[in-house]
Design a protein around this nucleic acid. Structure first.
Lengths: 349, 349
DNA sequence: TTGAAAGCGGTACCAC
DNA sequence: GTGGTACCGCTTTCAA
């Protein structure tokens, strides 16, 4: 049977409270007593019961991480960093997949309120309908990614600016006819090359809208009229989705001067479609991505992309969460992480 | 303040026990009583406290998933499926990263014994030194991936057979000089092209050894003497590591007929190195991977790889875990998931 | 079918 | 500095 504080206390000849003091090491305990307790602990192979501790303290020592889709390499990098940096703070990480379903986001908040997690890092997709905006008393929550709200703390990058910078970079390379891949699905379905079916939709994402805005701004600055035909909508930001819509696009259009893909995953699918269509990159057509995932450097050819300090990004998220956990009434903060264009072979001839 | 069972009971005019019965829906409750309780629950916005329930029941409703490195796309796919399939069983998933450090694997088992998780799915790297093999009473554990042991349940694929099949495929394409990328580091450091530094080591992994064995077997079957120069060691199975060692290899050797890469991530780094060196794939050199990650289909060129049913793989892991959780003394089982070679453009001229 | 009370394992409040 | 004790919220005997 499992040993408890009482067993340890009995063996060490002290009270349960003293055992607790030794384990949590907060108040001063006479070294001799401490040693006796520690010996008893190891002798009985005692491990504290987290459920009991959680019940008593009202905290579980775990945070929740909710991402729309764990398959995206971007998600994997975020997860990796959250787990690592949370570990440094002594927090465990419970992971959830919201599949862009508001219902799942709601379920999460319940779990948080059920004291399963002490706080939540949430990468929302459909925040408009999301529970975050509607529910009453919230657990400590930090949003990652772009969302228009000021209810909870948030860490993000300047999506509009980054998209503008990237399109500017493509313009600098002499491109005029620049397609965007990953634009929000238009309700009318009139966009360039059709869309891919699927339950998990990313259309309407704040990021998609903001990056489209940046794309439009850069074109406008260069005096170029946006061509709706060049806006390729996508309902899932994945290589397979991108590969499909870009292949369709190429079947119906001349290749543009460049494809600005809203994520590196999209860019990888785009590169594949161009390769299959026999369009050489960067000789005939440039390709740029967004996020600088690890794989992008080893794409063929290596991919130009938007980079930002992901570790700083996640660090800020945890910092903001810690703030909220310490003081539920702290005023929500918003942290913006700087970005830059990383030019690689896919956009340099 | 948070509502508790008592509050609900009082409002509904019943006892806490009845509330519990309604919530857990196990015993029969008079519909009228049930309705009253349910109304009280929603009126008070009651959410059960999981810590208390966990303390009482001795189960937390969560399982732990421990992977050596969350960055690998392969890990991301596993995580995705574990989270999804565990969700279907009503389990939460706590995620850990062991960084191939036995110490972290040990920490995990502690957490399991601390009742933070009810069971553990562990992808071990250094199982030789791992706590799994040494510790006394284990929580329910299922290993994923190849390991030589019969202490706990396990789900795996036939690494030797799969590697042999893949090399056979390359031989069938007319290759004779076939390099292997990802072989274990030899202690003497005498292997092909040197290795990459780093704290997280994957050398000595069972998978690396088994895939090397399969590679040797296929060569032997074809009457080809293995050439140690063609065994490129790698201490991290990542694109950057592979890109580096393959670039070095190409600087010192003629390109082989083919590279058999021990994972798709390695293959992606290898494709990039070949592209940079101006070696055309598949015209001058074939490349094959292993795992069939989502990205491999959209590599340039699309990557030949070993595929297996990942969903079945994870499903089996959860099934085995459920068995162990139900009966700690159940005899450990081992499930083998079938594999097949998926031939794509990277190995077909 | 439902109610009352005990207890899961730790910790905080108060004494000493 | 350390010991007793109540109590966190839920579930599970045992009675009614």
């Amino acid at each position: 049977m499992r040993a408890t504080v009482k067993d340890v206390a009995k063996l060490a000849g002290v009270s349960p409270k003293t055992v607790s003091n030794v384990i949590n090491g907060v108040v001063f305990v006479r070294p001799e007593t401490r040693a006796r307790v520690e010996r008893a602990v190891s002798e009985l192979d005692y491990v504290p019961n987290m459920s009991a501790r959680g019940l008593r303290n009202g905290r579980s020592g775990m945070i929740g991480l909710a991402l729309p889709d764990l398959l995206r390499p971007y998600s994997a990098e975020i997860t990796h960093l959250v787990v690592e940096l949370a570990h440094e703070r002594g927090w465990g990480v419970q992971i959830q997949q919201t599949a862009a379903e508001p219902e799942r986001e709601f379920e999460l908040l319940s779990k948080a309120r059920a004291h399963l997690v002490d706080g939540l890092i949430l990468n929302p997709i459909n925040l408009g309908d999301s529970a975050v905006m509607t529910a009453g008393p919230l657990p400590p929550v930090v949003l990652i990614g772009d969302v228009d709200q000021d209810v909870v703390s948030q860490v993000a990058i300047d999506n509009v600016g980054a998209a503008r910078d990237m399109v500017q970079h493509l313009l600098d390379q002499g491109c005029r006819r620049i397609a965007a891949v990953g634009t929000p699905e238009s309700p009318s379905g009139s966009s360039g090359a059709g869309t891919l079916g699927g339950s998990a939709t990313i259309a309407g994402t704040a990021a998609a809208r903001l990056r489209t805005t940046g794309y439009h701004q850069a074109l406008a600055d260069a005096g170029i009229e946006p061509d709706p035909e060049l806006e390729v909508a996508l309902d899932r930001w994945s290589p397979d989705g991108a590969n499909l819509v870009v292949s369709r696009f190429l079947a119906g259009h001349e290749p543009p001067d460049a494809f600005f893909c809203f994520t590196d995953s999209i860019a990888i699918g785009t590169l594949s479609a161009l390769w299959a269509a026999g369009v050489a990159v960067p000789d005939k057509c440039l390709v740029a991505g967004f996020d600088n995932i690890l794989e992008s450097q080893y794409a063929v050819p290596p991919l130009t992309t938007i980079d930002f300090d992901r570790r700083a990004f996640v660090h800020s998220a945890l910092e903001l969460l810690a703030e909220r956990m310490a003081d539920k009434d702290a005023v929500p903060r918003r942290v913006l992480i700087p970005h830059r264009v990383v030019a690689r072979a896919s956009t340099t001839r």
